[in-house]
């Protein structure tokens, strides 16, 4: 190898490690922001400032961030009742998210959707959905449009393992594979269908369902953001280049209850189990340790990221609390386009 060619290679490696460092510091910041966002949601809820229900995403951050970091802004996602993490990871602003959660005019849906229905065309978010498995048709249809309109957009359909019980999922997976649609079905297996362990509700294997349709499948440790991102990037690229849908199982864990009010959980899972996931498998800590090992950050630097994220989340909450409610006259606006 000549000196002439080795020089740019060295420069390339240095560039790569800089961008690698920035990429993972950014991902770390995103996960921390989601964690802090959900802490504030819990706070708003327990202080009775937030109407309705709140389903927290804490513990699952590596899935949303790992996958959305591999998407373009004009790619689409669909989300779930536990959707704050997906929306933020796809680019939603925390202040307008909080405003929506509090039913304010400044919210993404002008207060008409709430926590379970955040939607935002500007970031390709087709909407969170409060019907379990309710968005699988929309995601597959967006992929149908992406392909038929001649774009190279990709759609990621997030759903929990609870949606595996819904028949519509299998109808659309069949269509997606028949028509080679650019959609990635991301099954977030957080272990529990509400208050029931998924093994009590799920015959056979999770991946076996997609295998039956001949869909490309993969399974990944959903607490390891680098693994999630790597595998997702491959599946997304594959879909973008016209090779069809994929099904990605991400094994993860829901730190909180099914919703904020689900406090007494011992009848369906032990505190010991929860503690183990939090201490051994926390996605933020795992990435943090790796960043330190790589020399990309030290503990104080990560602490600074946390503090900055906390400040901006707190400012976002304040924005939402101070924001006005919609005028009652808006109640019958937007029923029809």
């Amino acid at each position: 190898m000549s000196a002439v060619t080795s020089k740019p290679e060295t420069a390339g490696t240095a560039e790569k490690s800089t961008s690698e460092k920035e990429k993972w510091l950014h991902a770390h910041r995103q996960m921390v922001s989601i964690r802090l966002f959900e802490e504030q949601v819990n706070e708003l809820y327990t202080r009775a400032l937030m109407p309705g229900l709140a389903h927290l995403y804490s513990g699952e951050e590596a899935v949303a961030v790992g996958i959305c970091e591999a998407l373009r802004i004009d790619d689409y996602i669909t989300s779930t009742h536990r959707g704050h993490g997906h929306c933020l990871a796809k680019g939603a602003a925390p202040d307008r998210m909080f405003a929506e959660l509090l039913g304010k005019e400044a919210g993404y849906c002008r207060g008409k959707g709430g926590s379970m229905h955040i939607a935002d065309p500007a970031t390709g978010n087709l909407g969170a959905n409060a019907i379990v498995g309710g968005s699988v048709g929309i995601a597959t249809g967006a992929a149908f449009a992406a392909k038929n309109l001649g774009t190279d957009r990709v759609v990621v359909c997030f759903f929990g393992e609870g949606a595996l019980g819904q028949g519509s999922l299998y109808e659309v997976m069949n269509l997606a594979q028949l028509w080679k649609l650019p959609v990635i079905y991301v099954c977030e297996n957080n272990q529990y269908n509400e208050y029931t362990h998924y093994q009590d509700t799920t015959a056979g294997t999770i991946l076996g369902r997609a295998v039956a349709f001949g869909i490309e499948t993969a399974k990944v440790d959903g607490q390891d953001i680098r693994a999630v991102n790597k595998i997702a990037a491959g599946l997304i690229q594959r879909a973008r280049s016209g090779d069809g849908p994929a099904f990605l199982q991400c094994d993860t864990y829901r730190y909180s209850g099914h919703h904020v009010g689900d406090i007494h959980r011992e009848y369906y899972r032990s505190k010991h189990e929860e503690q183990l996931w939090k201490t051994e498998r926390d996605p933020i800590r795992l990435l943090g340790s790796w960043l330190i090992e790589q020399g990309y950050a030290d503990a104080p630097a990560l602490e600074t990221i946390s503090l900055e994220a906390r400040k901006s989340i707190e400012a976002a909450v304040k924005f939402a609390i101070d924001a006005p409610y919609p005028s009652v006259s808006e109640v019958d606006e937007d029923v029809y386009a």
Binding site: G141, A146, L149
Partner: peptide, 11 residues
């Protein structure tokens, strides 16, 4: 369901 999503995405 596919029609709903396709309509949202421009068809």
């Amino acid at each position: 369901g596919v029609a709903v999503g396709a309509a949202m995405a421009g068809m």
